[in-house]
Amino acid sequence: MSQTKLQIPQAGFPTPIVGILQRARPEEGTRGQPVVLIIHGVLAHKDQVYHKKLANRLAEERGWDSFRYDLRGQGGESEGKWGMMNLDDDIVDLKVVIAYLEEEWGYRIHLIIAHSRGSMITAYYLSCFPHPHIPLFVNLSGRYDMTRILTDSRYSALRTEEEEYDKKAVVDWKVKVAGKELSNRVTWEGLRSFAEWNNDYLHHSFPQDIDVLTVHGTADQIVPVQDAYTFHTILSRRSPGTHSLSIVEGATHNYLKPFDEPVDSILKWLRRVDPPSSGVGAGGGGGGVAPSSKSPPKHKM
Results as ranks from 00 to 15, higher is better:
residue 121 I to S: 10
residue 121 I to A: 08
residue 122 T to E: 08
residue 123 A to P: 13
residue 123 A to Y: 04
residue 123 A to C: 05
residue 123 A to G: 07
residue 124 Y to Q: 00
residue 124 Y to W: 06
residue 124 Y to H: 05
residue 124 Y to L: 05
residue 124 Y to A: 05
residue 127 S to Y: 01
residue 128 C to V: 01
residue 128 C to Q: 04
residue 128 C to P: 11
residue 128 C to R: 02
residue 130 P to I: 00
residue 130 P to S: 02
residue 130 P to W: 03
residue 133 H to F: 04
residue 133 H to E: 09
residue 134 I to S: 08
residue 134 I to A: 02
residue 135 P to Y: 08
residue 135 P to K: 13
residue 135 P to R: 13
residue 135 P to H: 11
residue 136 L to D: 05
residue 137 F to M: 02
residue 137 F to Q: 00
residue 137 F to E: 00
residue 138 V to C: 12
residue 138 V to L: 09
residue 139 N to M: 09
residue 139 N to Q: 13
residue 140 L to R: 13
residue 140 L to G: 14
residue 140 L to H: 14
residue 141 S to E: 14
residue 142 G to H: 10
residue 142 G to C: 10
residue 143 R to W: 03
residue 144 Y to A: 01
residue 144 Y to H: 06
residue 145 D to G: 06
residue 145 D to Y: 05
residue 146 M to K: 07
residue 146 M to E: 06
residue 148 R to C: 05
residue 149 I to G: 07
residue 150 L to D: 08
residue 150 L to M: 08
residue 150 L to Q: 07
residue 151 T to C: 09
residue 151 T to V: 09
residue 151 T to L: 12
residue 151 T to M: 11
residue 151 T to S: 14
residue 152 D to N: 10
residue 152 D to G: 10
residue 153 S to W: 15
residue 154 R to G: 15
residue 155 Y to L: 09
residue 155 Y to H: 10
residue 156 S to L: 15
residue 156 S to T: 13
residue 157 A to V: 12
residue 157 A to R: 15
residue 157 A to I: 14
residue 158 L to R: 12
